[in-house]
Design a protein around this nucleic acid. Structure first.
Lengths: 168, 168
DNA sequence: CTGAATTTTCAAAAAATATTGAAAACAAAT
DNA sequence: ATTTGTTTTCAATATTTTTTGAAAATTCAG
């Protein structure tokens, strides 16, 4: 397989995987494109490469910047803005975990905490069961939250190092 | 907050969280409903409770069964089928991990393995960089795969037990 | 086997989401 | 201050995804 062909394949597949995870296809494709581009790209280059409109590029680039996965790059003497993606995959992964935790896990735990305080007879089977289910989901959430915090702080060898040794 | 109100809130919020994870809103809501229902429910009861059509219930229930999160229950003497959800949240979590791994992570690793074999000059900076990025994503994927396999096999106290001890 | 109850399918409709493109806003150079 | 290149916005449009509901298929009882 040729390089250009492989890049195309990567970009298109990454977009497809993205949608399965609730991520906009184009956003995932732009990220993929920047990951496999040696040099930073302009909006025009991204438009060209992916055959998408200027507005689409602009919106998704800003979204990617919001996720902390893409940075603006100023090239001196150039009028246009350039964009580049973090290439260190460990950093990319922790950044995504950090954001999803903040946007999704934390609000979910907050919700579950509220739902735990349902009023009613403690002997009521229905109340018991509800509180039990909500409580156990919250517990799992809190544990995941804690673990992910540590993971985010841990160094790159977390997976390869102590983690795997632990399970032998 | 009253129990019925809390249930409604849980179901509706669970649906919203689901969509963020690329899961059909109704499927997540049906799952939530069954999680907080003491008794198994029929399709008619689910239709009624969530105000959705029969076809919609049927399709999403089958999808949930496919994910291993919901089971058909036969109640003797009854003609209708009943449905119930696994209430043990740890089992639910490992089941979801197992399925997403199979449906998403494994295919992704397969793709990356193919893309690693790009033909071309090894000294070409572009080829090097591409291979490096693809290789590191694959590596991360393989490590996650391995870790999740162990997690799936591990007992319920994985998070609370050794996992947290490891990080102090 | 027949008929009634129940489940499944799937084309059409509705809803949700993503994309376009042109106008407006902004920024740099002269 | 004006022109020119560039970025941003957002209403309109297109696409994708979900939902409906009625017909077909299936299942069970008699």
């Amino acid at each position: 397989m040729k390089l250009s062909e492989a890049k195309q394949q990567f970009i298109s597949s990454w977009g497809a995987f993205g949608t399965q995870w609730g991520i906009n296809r184009t956003m995932a494709q732009i990220h993929a494109l920047l990951l496999v581009s040696i040099n930073p790209l302009t909006q025009d280059e991204i438009m060209e490469e992916l055959s998408i409109s200027r507005g689409n590029v602009n919106m998704n680039i800003r979204e990617l910047i919001g996720w902390g996965l893409v940075d603006r790059v100023i090239i001196s003497g150039e009028r246009k803005e350039y964009f580049t993606a973090e290439k260190d995959i460990w950093k990319v992964a922790t950044q995504i975990i950090k954001e999803r935790k903040k946007r999704e896990l934390d609000p979910m735990i907050k919700l579950l905490s509220q739902l735990e305080n349902v009023e009613g007879d403690k002997k009521d089977k229905a109340v018991q069961q509800f509180t039990q289910v909500i409580g156990s989901i919250k517990k799992l959430g809190l544990q995941a939250d804690k673990t992910l915090d540590l993971l985010i702080k841990a160094e790159e060898n977390w997976f390869t190092g102590s983690m795997l040794k632990m399970f032998k």
